[in-house]
Amino acid sequence: MKPRILGALVMTCLVLLLPAGVLAEREEPLSPQALKIANDLNCPVCEGQSVRDSNSQLARDMRRTVQERLDEGYTEEEVYDYFVDRYGVGILREPPKSGFFMTLWWAPVIGIAIGALVLGTFIAQRKKPVQATTEPSAGSASDEHDPDDDLSEYEQKILRDLDDDDSLRNGRQ
Protein backbone atom coordinates (compact mmCIF):
# COMPACT_ATOMS: atom_id res chain seq x y z
CA MET A 1 0.00 0.00 0.00
CA LYS A 2 2.74 2.44 0.99
CA PRO A 3 4.32 2.92 -2.42
CA ARG A 4 0.91 3.57 -3.84
CA ILE A 5 0.13 6.33 -1.39
CA LEU A 6 3.52 7.81 -2.08
CA GLY A 7 2.88 7.50 -5.76
CA ALA A 8 -0.43 9.25 -5.40
CA LEU A 9 1.21 12.07 -3.49
CA VAL A 10 3.93 12.49 -6.09
CA MET A 11 1.31 12.47 -8.75
CA THR A 12 -0.80 15.11 -7.06
CA CYS A 13 2.25 17.35 -6.80
CA LEU A 14 3.05 16.72 -10.45
CA VAL A 15 -0.46 17.54 -11.49
CA LEU A 16 -0.50 20.70 -9.50
CA LEU A 17 2.90 21.71 -10.83
CA LEU A 18 2.27 20.90 -14.46
CA PRO A 19 -0.29 23.48 -15.37
CA ALA A 20 0.94 26.13 -12.99
CA GLY A 21 2.13 29.19 -14.79
CA VAL A 22 0.61 28.17 -18.04
CA LEU A 23 -1.88 30.94 -17.70
CA ALA A 24 0.72 33.37 -16.42
CA GLU A 25 -0.12 35.76 -19.16
CA ARG A 26 -3.86 35.66 -19.52
CA GLU A 27 -4.44 34.79 -23.09
CA GLU A 28 -7.05 36.93 -24.71
CA PRO A 29 -9.84 34.84 -26.16
CA LEU A 30 -9.47 34.64 -29.91
CA SER A 31 -11.65 36.59 -32.29
CA PRO A 32 -13.85 34.54 -34.63
CA GLN A 33 -11.56 35.45 -37.52
CA ALA A 34 -8.50 34.25 -35.60
CA LEU A 35 -10.31 31.04 -34.67
CA LYS A 36 -11.08 30.43 -38.32
CA ILE A 37 -7.47 30.95 -39.35
CA ALA A 38 -6.25 28.77 -36.49
CA ASN A 39 -8.60 26.06 -37.67
CA ASP A 40 -7.06 26.24 -41.16
CA LEU A 41 -3.55 25.58 -39.88
CA ASN A 42 -2.04 22.25 -38.93
CA CYS A 43 -0.39 22.01 -35.57
CA PRO A 44 3.17 21.09 -36.61
CA VAL A 45 3.99 18.99 -33.57
CA CYS A 46 0.78 17.06 -33.09
CA GLU A 47 -0.43 14.78 -35.83
CA GLY A 48 -3.84 15.40 -37.22
CA GLN A 49 -5.02 18.33 -35.09
CA SER A 50 -5.49 21.90 -36.12
CA VAL A 51 -3.85 24.80 -34.32
CA ARG A 52 -7.27 25.72 -32.99
CA ASP A 53 -7.84 22.31 -31.44
CA SER A 54 -4.39 21.44 -30.19
CA ASN A 55 -3.34 21.84 -26.61
CA SER A 56 0.38 22.01 -27.30
CA GLN A 57 2.45 25.02 -26.33
CA LEU A 58 3.45 25.63 -29.94
CA ALA A 59 -0.17 25.73 -31.06
CA ARG A 60 -0.93 28.12 -28.25
CA ASP A 61 1.88 30.41 -29.37
CA MET A 62 0.67 30.17 -32.94
CA ARG A 63 -2.85 31.11 -31.89
CA ARG A 64 -1.48 34.14 -30.15
CA THR A 65 0.59 35.04 -33.20
CA VAL A 66 -2.49 34.81 -35.39
CA GLN A 67 -4.40 37.13 -33.10
CA GLU A 68 -1.51 39.58 -32.84
CA ARG A 69 -1.02 39.74 -36.58
CA LEU A 70 -4.72 40.38 -37.09
CA ASP A 71 -4.67 43.06 -34.43
CA GLU A 72 -1.73 44.68 -36.20
CA GLY A 73 -3.89 44.97 -39.28
CA TYR A 74 -2.56 42.12 -41.38
CA THR A 75 -5.06 40.63 -43.81
CA GLU A 76 -6.04 36.96 -43.59
CA GLU A 77 -3.95 36.22 -46.67
CA GLU A 78 -0.90 37.80 -45.12
CA VAL A 79 -1.32 35.76 -41.96
CA TYR A 80 -1.51 32.54 -44.00
CA ASP A 81 1.53 33.59 -46.03
CA TYR A 82 3.45 34.30 -42.86
CA PHE A 83 2.91 30.73 -41.65
CA VAL A 84 3.55 29.17 -45.06
CA ASP A 85 6.87 31.04 -45.23
CA ARG A 86 7.90 29.72 -41.87
CA TYR A 87 6.60 26.15 -41.93
CA GLY A 88 6.10 25.31 -45.59
CA VAL A 89 2.92 24.67 -47.45
CA GLY A 90 2.16 21.62 -45.30
CA ILE A 91 1.02 23.96 -42.55
CA LEU A 92 -2.18 24.63 -44.45
CA ARG A 93 -4.95 22.25 -43.58
CA GLU A 94 -6.37 22.71 -47.03
CA PRO A 95 -3.59 22.00 -49.55
CA PRO A 96 -3.38 24.72 -52.20
CA LYS A 97 -5.12 24.18 -55.52
CA SER A 98 -2.05 24.79 -57.61
CA GLY A 99 1.01 23.08 -59.04
CA PHE A 100 1.68 19.57 -57.85
CA PHE A 101 -1.24 19.69 -55.43
CA MET A 102 -3.63 19.83 -58.33
CA THR A 103 -3.14 16.06 -58.56
CA LEU A 104 -4.72 15.77 -55.13
CA TRP A 105 -7.75 17.77 -56.13
CA TRP A 106 -8.19 16.53 -59.65
CA ALA A 107 -7.65 12.80 -59.10
CA PRO A 108 -11.10 12.27 -57.52
CA VAL A 109 -12.73 14.26 -60.33
CA ILE A 110 -10.87 12.26 -62.96
CA GLY A 111 -11.71 9.10 -61.02
CA ILE A 112 -15.42 9.83 -61.04
CA ALA A 113 -15.23 10.84 -64.72
CA ILE A 114 -13.59 7.53 -65.62
CA GLY A 115 -16.16 5.73 -63.52
CA ALA A 116 -18.96 7.56 -65.31
CA LEU A 117 -17.35 6.77 -68.66
CA VAL A 118 -17.11 3.07 -67.85
CA LEU A 119 -20.70 3.13 -66.66
CA GLY A 120 -21.73 4.97 -69.82
CA THR A 121 -19.99 2.42 -72.03
CA PHE A 122 -21.60 -0.39 -70.06
CA ILE A 123 -25.02 1.15 -70.51
CA ALA A 124 -24.45 1.92 -74.20
CA GLN A 125 -23.21 -1.61 -74.87
CA ARG A 126 -25.99 -3.31 -73.02
CA LYS A 127 -28.76 -1.16 -74.34
CA LYS A 128 -29.72 -3.20 -77.31
CA PRO A 129 -33.13 -2.94 -78.88
CA VAL A 130 -35.59 -4.35 -76.40
CA GLN A 131 -38.49 -6.31 -77.68
CA ALA A 132 -41.72 -4.71 -76.69
CA THR A 133 -42.76 -6.42 -73.53
CA THR A 134 -46.26 -6.38 -72.30
CA GLU A 135 -45.43 -6.49 -68.64
CA PRO A 136 -47.63 -3.97 -66.89
CA SER A 137 -45.07 -2.56 -64.47
CA ALA A 138 -42.39 -2.25 -67.08
CA GLY A 139 -44.74 -0.35 -69.28
CA SER A 140 -43.39 2.82 -70.76
CA ALA A 141 -47.03 3.60 -70.74
CA SER A 142 -48.80 6.49 -72.32
CA ASP A 143 -49.09 9.72 -70.48
CA GLU A 144 -52.83 9.69 -70.07
CA HIS A 145 -53.13 7.36 -67.18
CA ASP A 146 -56.05 6.94 -64.93
CA PRO A 147 -54.63 7.85 -61.50
CA ASP A 148 -56.36 4.87 -59.96
CA ASP A 149 -54.69 2.67 -62.51
CA ASP A 150 -51.32 3.97 -61.43
CA LEU A 151 -52.02 3.29 -57.83
CA SER A 152 -53.30 -0.19 -58.43
CA GLU A 153 -50.39 -0.80 -60.74
CA TYR A 154 -48.10 0.20 -57.94
CA GLU A 155 -49.90 -2.07 -55.51
CA GLN A 156 -49.61 -4.90 -57.97
CA LYS A 157 -45.91 -4.23 -58.20
CA ILE A 158 -45.45 -4.36 -54.45
CA LEU A 159 -47.47 -7.52 -54.07
CA ARG A 160 -45.56 -9.09 -56.88
CA ASP A 161 -42.27 -8.02 -55.33
CA LEU A 162 -43.33 -9.59 -52.08
CA ASP A 163 -44.38 -12.80 -53.78
CA ASP A 164 -41.28 -12.80 -55.85
CA ASP A 165 -39.08 -12.48 -52.82
CA ASP A 166 -41.02 -15.20 -51.05
CA SER A 167 -40.55 -17.56 -53.90
CA LEU A 168 -36.93 -16.58 -54.36
CA ARG A 169 -36.39 -17.45 -50.76
CA ASN A 170 -38.38 -20.59 -51.17
CA GLY A 171 -36.29 -21.60 -54.07
CA ARG A 172 -33.25 -21.30 -51.90
CA GLN A 173 -34.43 -23.31 -49.01
Binding site: N42, E47, V89, G90, R93, F101, A107, G115
Partner: peptide, 26 residues
Amino acid sequence: FATFWGTVFPIVSELFRDTKLMVGPP
Protein backbone atom coordinates in the same frame (compact mmCIF):
# COMPACT_ATOMS: atom_id res chain seq x y z
CA PHE B 1 -11.39 6.36 -54.18
CA ALA B 2 -11.33 10.02 -53.11
CA THR B 3 -10.93 9.03 -49.48
CA PHE B 4 -8.17 6.58 -50.33
CA TRP B 5 -6.38 9.13 -52.45
CA GLY B 6 -6.56 11.83 -49.80
CA THR B 7 -5.29 9.36 -47.21
CA VAL B 8 -2.26 8.19 -49.17
CA PHE B 9 -1.50 11.55 -50.79
CA PRO B 10 0.85 12.67 -47.99
CA ILE B 11 3.01 9.63 -48.79
CA VAL B 12 2.88 10.41 -52.51
CA SER B 13 3.81 14.01 -51.81
CA GLU B 14 6.67 13.00 -49.56
CA LEU B 15 7.99 10.52 -52.11
CA PHE B 16 7.84 12.74 -55.18
CA ARG B 17 8.04 16.25 -53.84
CA ASP B 18 9.67 15.86 -50.50
CA THR B 19 6.89 18.02 -49.14
CA LYS B 20 5.31 16.96 -45.89
CA LEU B 21 1.70 17.83 -45.75
CA MET B 22 -1.55 16.73 -44.26
CA VAL B 23 -4.76 16.29 -46.10
CA GLY B 24 -7.33 17.43 -43.61
CA PRO B 25 -11.09 17.89 -43.40
CA PRO B 26 -11.28 20.74 -45.98
